[in-house]
């Protein structure tokens, strides 16, 4: 165990969110009612996804510079965990939408943008499973990952803000301003985001580390040699 503190911190922050998110007072608003509390759980899923994809982006570029297969493992598993959180974000968003906007799916620009972003990342997995050669797979998927991340930014941050949307913070509305006015909501939401990001990174590292062990065992000569030089 290299360092525990940030994992425990992540769990404490997320645990506090579950308790505080349900018990602390929220503004009384029509239509939203108590579902306003979903903000503490639905939105951090997306923040976590963005951070995990950013990590994958970083390691993809690093792989293209170093050609070290360990960087490829980091990029792949950060992407997979990011996809996992995007699925959670999409499902929780649809559940919330059903009871506030009336439909599971209302072709909201942000729903469409994130769905397209998810499809781009699903294709990453398909692309990888289609290439047998390790080096080739790593190189092509690293290039693809850089493009996928570059596509995510306009799809999630720019395009939904340019048109009218059911989501707050779009169609000219300043993001979160409506909710952020309430100090109790800020007390929970600003804790939920880093809490879930830490949990997401932790889950990703749990997937990365066994893969690293396997890789280093398979290429024992190479990595032992590397260690001896150091």
């Amino acid at each position: 165990m290299r360092s525990w503190w940030w994992k425990i911190l992540g769990a404490v922050l997320t645990g506090y969110t579950i308790v505080g998110g349900l018990l602390l007072p929220v503004p009384h608003l029509d239509i939203l009612n108590e579902t306003i509390r979903n903000l503490y759980f639905h939105v951090p899923m997306w923040f976590t996804m963005i951070v995990l994809f950013a990590c994958a982006f970083y390691y993809s570029i690093k792989y293209l510079r170093t050609s070290d297969l360990r960087d490829d493992i980091f990029a792949t598993q950060y992407t997979n965990t990011g996809i996992f959180f995007s699925i959670l974000g999409m499902l929780t968003g649809m559940e919330w939408a059903k009871f506030t906007w009336g439909e599971w799916w209302s072709n909201d620009p942000k729903q469409l943008g994130t769905a397209m972003c998810m499809l781009i990342y699903f294709a990453y997995g398909i692309l990888r499973s289609g290439i047998k050669d390790e080096e080739k797979r790593a190189k092509i998927s690293a290039v693809y990952n850089v493009f996928a991340f570059a596509m995510m930014i306009p799809l999630i941050f720019i395009l939904p803000r340019m048109v009218d949307s059911l989501h707050p913070g779009n169609g000219g509305n300043p993001a979160f301003a409506k909710y952020d006015l309430d100090k109790y909501m800020r007390m929970v939401f600003y804790v939920a985001v880093p809490g879930w990001i830490l949990m997401g990174v932790w889950i990703a590292t749990l997937k990365i580390r066994p893969e690293l062990v396997i890789l280093e065992k398979e290429n024992a000569d190479l990595y032992d040699f590397e260690k001896n030089i150091k």
Partner: peptide
Amino acid sequence: VVAVLATIFAGIFAYLVMLDRKI
């Protein structure tokens, strides 16, 4: 409800810790 959710989350946390130690 809070207790139930906290229990589930504590369980998931414990599971992650066990996995982490095993790795």
